[in-house]
């Protein structure tokens, strides 16, 4: 069993079927393949495209015309959805969500890298047990701990603040990322560590000067996934946040379908599209890293 991490994105022995000489039957099969793929993509993405087009249609057209292209393009929905009845904008929940997610990212990067370094590079008693413990917590369903956590935070007076959402991250509760980083660190040759140690570096120094810089890809992956998961985390935000000023995107969107006084779906769709943008942007920029992060996190060849 190897311990090296495959460099992201490459494969040593591609096993994609080699295209043979393009016999007519084969060409037809290939064409069919592309057709199927295209139909598949259309079916998969149609809801998203429809969402976008509905957000640009005036209210009476949303259900009236089944066609994708609006008869009249307008951004009125965006304007109406942006301003809510009490004068605040949708920008507030957007900003809130981003802030909370960034806080979570910071916490995870710091705490998980520290723990991962210990597991991957340090020797200490009960290491096996501790590691096993960590792995178990990864599989624990959130519901088992949520109620006492809620009670704890309630007694501390932290309910209706962002503290319950961000602070635990600074204590490495997302053990999945510890595991991710452990795997990554084990791919970094020990020689570098030893060289630094010979120069008189303490483990702390090794962590800062050797491991952390090389850990960057894993850190980025951690950051991206933490951001994505926190941004979309409905359950925790639902139970811990009630003040309207603190609403994050999932809660603000829910208001659209819950609140009294919302008149039509147009603004709701428009704000839904808007709320998907940060995720989309993140994806477009880091697409390679996200996809490879998924595939290498569990797959060591």
């Amino acid at each position: 069993m190897t311990t090296t991490t495959q460099p992201a994105g490459t494969s040593t022995r591609p096993s994609a079927t080699v295209p043979r000489a393009a016999a007519p039957g084969r060409r037809a099969a290939r064409a069919l393949l592309y057709i199927v793929l295209v139909i598949g993509v259309v079916a998969m993405l149609y809801p998203l495209v429809w969402l976008l087009s509905a957000s640009l249609k005036p209210a009476d057209e949303i259900f009236g015309s089944a066609g994708l292209l609006p008869d009249t393009w307008n951004v009125a929905n965006y304007e109406n959805g942006w301003i809510s009845a009490d004068g605040s904008t949708f920008g507030r929940p957007l900003l809130n969500s981003i802030l909370v997610s960034l806080g979570a990212v910071t916490g995870n990067i710091l705490a998980c890298s520290l723990a991962a370094f210990a597991f991957a590079r340090l020797e200490f008693p009960f290491k096996r047990t501790a590691f096993a413990l960590m792995m178990v917590t990864v599989m624990l369903p959130a519901q088992v701990t949520i109620i006492p956590q809620y009670i704890l935070f309630n007694n501390l007076g932290w309910v209706d603040t962002y503290l319950p959402l961000v602070l635990p991250k600074f204590f490495a509760v997302d053990a999945f990322f510890i595991f991710l980083m452990v795997q990554f660190i084990r791919g970094i040759p020990r020689d570098l560590d030893d060289a630094a140690a010979l120069d008189g570096c303490s483990p702390g120094g090794i962590y800062l000067k050797v491991i952390l810089p090389l850990l960057r890809p894993a850190l980025v992956t951690t950051a991206i996934f933490t951001f994505l998961w926190t941004y979309n985390d409905f359950f925790s935000q639902l139970i811990y946040i009630s003040k309207a000023q603190l609403y994050t995107v999932p809660l603000a969107l829910r208001q659209f379908i819950d609140g009294t006084g919302q008149s039509d779906y147009g603004p709701m769709f428009a704000m839904s599209v808007l709320s998907l943008l940060p995720t989309l942007v993140l994806f477009l920029i880091f697409q390679r890293l996200i996809v490879d992060g998924i595939s290498t996190s569990g797959m060591k060849g």
């Binding site: 096993a132 413990l133 999945f176």
Partner: peptide, 20 residues
Amino acid sequence: MKKGQPVHHSHRVPSRRSFL
């Protein structure tokens, strides 16, 4: 991907009660 859970190579389920 939702919260992914990497898996032990062994076939045994690790004991959850060990941290009691």
